[in-house]
């Protein structure tokens, strides 16, 4: 019983151990790593990735993918920036962020499920379209000096713990409930695991998938609020590396890239691992140009270990 439970969570346990080892290692080399100020900035700077990865988990679980999250976040950030500079009421800005995010998600979902385009191609296409839109709207300039009106929600906090940390915990808690306790969540796993069987069971594949992409859009819209608050500006290249890093976090967190398996708490650990490692490269003085090499290598190691693990499980379950 216990052994079974450990086996079921072996990936999370392994990741946890790796996280602790890396943390101790970096702290020994650079003692400022575990200082309260550094930890606080890690929590704040990792928050956008944490939110977007939670959304990405949904679509990867159903054997999809969303490459457009960075461009969508950029476009929504632009709307938020206009709102902040135009002194719109905060509630209106938040509403615009959530609704426009939902709309961009619905466009992805519509192209995929009504237009029968595979998720990778559809979101690769919308990514370049939204990037072009950002460029056209910004005219090559930056939107800067945005007032941090959402500041209290994000960076403000009690006893040094920023509020965004609690918000992220709430998002992951809600996601965990949705994935394990609701019909919608279980359908995601069923579709990702075996689409044919899911269809034969009468699961509405298109409707479920469509809403999954809409939820991703909403979460990315919320992430845009956090992003503009932290950064105070919207630049041309906003969110360019976000899709890769989010996919890396999800895969590293033990979610099967082919869908159907994985837990949201594993993803949170994957996010933590990447945030710690990126901070470590800065503290250890590794040039920022190699940042993406680290993330790329993490992805490859993560899928390799996942496949080795999966292969062994398949082998074991054979008669």
């Amino acid at each position: 019983m216990l052994r079974e439970k450990i086996g079921h969570h072996s990936h999370e346990i392994l990741l946890g151990v790796a996280l602790i080892v890396v943390t101790i290692g970096v702290d020994l080399l650079r003692p400022q790593f575990l200082s309260p100020a550094n930890l606080q900035s890690l929590l704040i700077n990792g928050s956008v990735l944490a939110m977007v990865s939670a959304g990405m988990t949904l679509v990867i679980l159903l054997a999809g993918i969303d490459i457009s999250v960075g461009a969508v976040m950029g476009l929504v950030s632009l709307f938020i920036g206009w709102g902040l500079l135009g002194h719109w009421p905060l509630l209106l800005i938040a509403l615009v962020a959530v609704l426009s995010g939902a709309m961009f998600g619905a466009i992805n979902g519509g192209i995929i499920y009504l237009g029968h385009v595979s998720p990778i191609v559809a979101t690769l296409g919308t990514m370049s379209i939204w990037e072009a839109a950002i460029f056209a709207l910004l005219r090559g300039e930056w939107l800067s000096g945005l007032p941090a009106k959402f500041g209290p929600l994000v960076v403000g906090g009690v006893a040094g713990v920023p509020n965004i940390a609690w918000i992220i915990l709430v998002i992951y808690g809600a996601m965990s409930v949705v994935l394990t306790k609701t019909d919608f969540g279980r359908r995601l796993y069923a579709i990702g695991n075996n689409g044919e069987a899911a269809r034969l069971m009468g699961i509405p594949i298109k409707r479920t998938g469509f809403w999954a992409y809409v939820v991703v859009g909403v979460i990315v819209g919320l992430a845009a609020i956090v992003y503009t608050t932290i950064n105070g500006n919207v630049e041309n290249q906003v969110g360019a590396n976000l899709p890769l890093t989010a996919i890396a976090a999800v895969v590293l967190g033990g979610v099967d890239i082919l869908g159907g398996a994985g837990s949201i708490w594993g993803v949170l650990m994957g996010v933590a691992f990447i945030v710690v490692l990126e901070n470590a490269t800065v503290l250890l003085g590794i040039p920022a140009l190699y940042d993406q090499a680290v993330v790329g290598a993490i992805i490859l190691v993560a899928v390799l270990t996942n496949s080795v693990r999966r292969g062994r499980q398949n082998y074991r379950s054979m008669p």
Partner: peptide
């Protein structure tokens, strides 16, 4: 040979190769 999904492997190597190119030329 390792039967890993092409999408995720080449996404990883894209950033790996691209970043090495940036690194060895200082951008």
């Amino acid at each position: 040979y390792q039967r890993l999904p092409a999408l995720i492997v080449t996404l990883g190597t894209q950033y790996l190769f691209g970043s090495i190119a940036l690194g060895i030329t200082n951008g």
